[in-house]
Simulated scan of single mutants.
Amino acid sequence: MKQNPKRPPSTPVPGDPTLAEQVGAKAARKLKARRSATPGVWFGLGMMGLIGWSVVVPTLLGAALGLWLDQQHQASGGRSWT
């Protein structure tokens, strides 16, 4: 029978961590994350600023493009791109 390519081989590869070692490492990471301090106010403000800029910059670029299009096609009249 052919072996399923998505399925890992039944024999472990030397140097690969066992399932127990992987679970232990993940548990240790979770415990370390729980012990560490929660992000401060500045972290929250920084994230709000980052998200804000990701909304503001495309909006301003779109408005600038619309104004440029309005200036380029002023003679045709009728349609405003802003």
Rank of each mutant, 00 (worst) to 15 (best):
55 V>S: 04
39 P>L: 08
12 P>Q: 09
72 Q>R: 15
65 L>Y: 10
55 V>Y: 12
38 T>A: 11
41 V>H: 06
60 L>C: 06
70 D>V: 13
13 V>E: 10
56 V>R: 11
68 W>H: 04
46 G>C: 02
21 E>T: 02
6 K>N: 13
33 A>C: 02
26 K>C: 06
66 G>I: 01
56 V>E: 09
16 D>I: 05
19 L>N: 04
35 R>V: 03
69 L>P: 05
23 V>E: 11
61 L>H: 06
21 E>V: 00
36 S>F: 01
20 A>Y: 13
70 D>M: 06
15 G>M: 04
73 H>D: 02
81 W>S: 08
77 G>K: 15
43 F>K: 03
71 Q>K: 09
82 T>K: 04
7 R>N: 06
71 Q>E: 08
16 D>L: 12
54 S>M: 15
6 K>H: 07
10 S>P: 11
10 S>Q: 11
75 A>L: 09
8 P>Y: 13
44 G>P: 00
64 A>Y: 15
5 P>M: 09
49 G>M: 07
43 F>R: 08
47 M>I: 10
67 L>Q: 05
30 K>Q: 11
33 A>F: 12
31 L>W: 11
80 S>R: 13
25 A>G: 09
31 L>H: 06
1 M>A: 03
69 L>Q: 09
82 T>I: 10
49 G>N: 03
6 K>L: 13
52 G>K: 05
20 A>V: 08
51 I>H: 00
47 M>V: 12
2 K>V: 11
6 K>F: 14
80 S>V: 12
10 S>F: 02
24 G>K: 12
75 A>V: 04
7 R>P: 00
7 R>C: 07
26 K>Y: 10
29 R>P: 03
37 A>L: 13
33 A>I: 02
15 G>K: 01
68 W>L: 10
68 W>P: 00
50 L>Q: 08
37 A>Y: 07
37 A>K: 11
7 R>K: 15
79 R>F: 15
20 A>G: 02
37 A>Q: 11
44 G>E: 08
23 V>F: 03
65 L>F: 07
26 K>P: 01
57 V>K: 14
39 P>E: 10
15 G>V: 00
53 W>T: 01
81 W>T: 00
52 G>D: 10
78 G>P: 06
72 Q>Y: 12
17 P>E: 06
63 A>Y: 13
9 P>A: 08
9 P>Y: 05
41 V>S: 05
48 M>G: 01
55 V>M: 14
73 H>Y: 13
33 A>R: 12
74 Q>N: 04
60 L>F: 14
30 K>F: 15
55 V>P: 00
44 G>K: 09
51 I>N: 01
74 Q>R: 14
22 Q>K: 03
78 G>W: 10
14 P>D: 01
67 L>V: 05
21 E>A: 07
45 L>V: 10
11 T>F: 01
17 P>T: 04
63 A>S: 07
20 A>E: 15
46 G>I: 02
28 A>K: 15
61 L>T: 06
81 W>P: 01
1 M>C: 01
63 A>E: 10
65 L>C: 03
75 A>D: 13
26 K>A: 09
70 D>T: 05
56 V>Q: 05
3 Q>D: 10
50 L>W: 15
35 R>H: 11
80 S>K: 08
72 Q>S: 11
40 G>W: 04
2 K>F: 14
11 T>M: 12
59 T>F: 14
61 L>Q: 09
